[in-house]
Write a protein that binds this DNA or RNA. Structure first.
Lengths: 339, 339
DNA sequence: CTGAAAGCGCTTACAG
DNA sequence: CTGAAAGCGCTTACAG
């Protein structure tokens, strides 16, 4: 057995045409019924020869190849194991396995020159039946190109680029953030500060939107709530000053690296502020390894699973485009309390 | 642009044949020289149309598709991040990126029935130009089938199945283990016990081989050195008993889950034995998060890189088969000392 | 220096 | 119920 057997070989053994072999093996019973004896003979021959369909030919002939692309714009196996994206990838793999799909990790952008790099790399995703995309920025041109070619794709994270035509599975940061602030309001807090990063990613603006919406619904002034800051600006002095101004609760954005919440937590400790006795502190997300901090959980693993499910739905034609937002379970924590 | 442009479209625009387009774009200058004007026209047309070669067609037409398979026999993104295989995967990805290759993760074996499972799944690896394999056991039939079809593959870890025809990049456990024992001998130890797992994986027998070789070279009796044990058998009583018998050094196999070394370390502590004052303890490998333990480091990331490099060498024809063993840096540690 | 033709292994109308 | 034929988008001898 020097060469892998193909349908033609089976056809020869079974004494039928290659077309019939294809029909039998693909289980394509539409409008055609193969006689049971024929089926059996083909199946037997296939088994005997150890036939396995060539996925490449299958794909070229316009069928599916059960390959799902994953485009991360970065390493999928970063050196820091606790990487932000890891659980999402784990979810993607789990769901892919469950659905019988293999994964193509597009990382091979090494050989190309910088200019055509992203463009060509992204276009290469077409080897797969569809592709899951990651990353903060959307390279609009190539993504638009894929969309125009009716190539199934879904982004992980909410996207509003390209006129809102990008399918995605995202996180409902607006609702989750509002819920955190509402818990604070119920506990009697009236003077709240929201510490956010200076960057304007959607995940940042969505959180802010949620925070402000909750404040407004409580008919509280919105004016001085939002404070943009770098982690270096967040120190004991800042928290102490706020305390003196009557602030009773601080809400902190959880960025992908978690630098802001870490700085805030450290600052509180440095300032000798006990949480929640002296100050209530909540995080919009969950700092690594700190389940004691009040906030919410980003369902990252589920994000991955849902992205794959949506992608496969697109591929199988169940739906051509869709945008989904996932709820975040609130984390009670022990760093917020009544005023 | 509803459909992706193909070579035929470029040919039409440039006023040449599709063959010429293929020749120009593939840079295939063997035996053929295209006139510079023609080249330029083709290149311009390709750029203008935003042409990207269809990797599937390329592959079917018997060229390479720059896809490298990775077959793990398990989850590539396990829930426990500190998983044994993770650094290897990281190395694989890093090297693949460096060499401009994408990765296909074969995890989609879910939909198939148990019997044909592994067989079919492994054969599917043929979508890629070649494949890196992992795992303790070699499923001989399908691997043999791939080998016969001249499919480039390399195992991570030494393999002696199939008549030693399996290409691999492994670890020189024999040498690394012997070196550990030699350090002990130099420190004056004469009564040594080697604690190994009950399973006979190559990585286990290789370590044992190294241990015994070192002992023999020192012309010491080999008789009672090797002790097969489950982690449950390794307790304070055992170590105390050995101490009473005059044992001054214990060497422990580091299994993939690290249960044996963990048990030994715990037993020593429970027995109140100070390391290395009361007992020297070395591990053949490195327990997670314990750089203080004497032993050696398994260059896992490098293992991944080298596997990919060997695979690509095979694919490009640089070498059709090869077997490599990597050296392990010794870890001095602080758990062994002079008698 | 360039093109017509066959072929990679499959699927999918379309005939019989 | 089954087969001949075209086609998926490329590469690769082989002619001119």
């Amino acid at each position: 057995m020097a060469r892998a057997p193909r349908q033609a070989d089976i056809a020869a053994v079974a004494g039928v045409s290659q077309t019939t072999v294809s029909l039998v093996l693909s289980g394509n019973t539409e409008g055609t019924r193969l006689s049971e004896p024929t089926r059996q003979r083909v199946l037997a021959a296939a088994e005997q020869l150890g036939y396995v369909p060539d996925p490449v030919a299958t794909r070229l002939a316009s069928a599916r190849n059960h390959l799902l692309g994953v485009y991360t714009f970065a390493s999928a196996f970063p050196i820091e194991l606790d990487d932000f994206y890891y659980p999402i990838l784990a979810g993607i793999e789990a769901e892919a396995t469950a659905l019988g799909q293999d994964l193509v990790l597009f990382t091979g952008t090494g050989g190309l020159d910088a200019r055509t790099d992203a463009k060509t790399a992204i276009r290469r995703t077409r080897v797969a039946d569809g592709c899951v995309f990651f990353g903060r920025h959307v390279p609009e041109e190539p993504i638009d190109w894929l969309l125009h070619g009716d190539f199934p794709l879904v982004y992980v994270g909410r996207r509003d680029e390209l006129g809102g035509r990008i399918p995605f599975v995202g996180v409902d940061y607006v609702a989750a953030s509002a819920a955190v602030v509402e818990r604070l309001l119920e506990l009697g807090h009236r003077e709240i500060r929201y510490l956010r990063s200076v960057e304007d990613a959607l995940s940042s603006t969505d959180r802010e939107k949620g925070v402000l919406a909750a404040i407004r619904r409580a008919r509280l002034p919105v004016r001085r709530v939002v404070v943009r800051a770098q982690s270096a600006d967040v120190d004991a002095a800042l928290l102490t000053k706020w305390r003196d101004e009557g602030v009773t609760a601080v809400v902190v954005e959880e960025t992908d690296l978690g630098v802001l919440s870490r700085a805030a937590l450290a600052a509180a400790e440095e300032a000798g502020l006990r949480l929640p006795e002296d100050l209530s502190l909540a995080v919009l997300g969950q700092p690594k390894g700190r389940p004691d901090v009040s906030g919410f959980e980003v369902p990252r693993r589920e994000l991955g699973r849902r992205a794959v499910r949506l992608l496969v739905d697109q591929i199988t034609g169940a739906r051509r485009t869709d945008q989904q937002l996932l709820d975040c379970p609130q984390v009670p924590g022990a760093t917020i309390g009544a005023v």
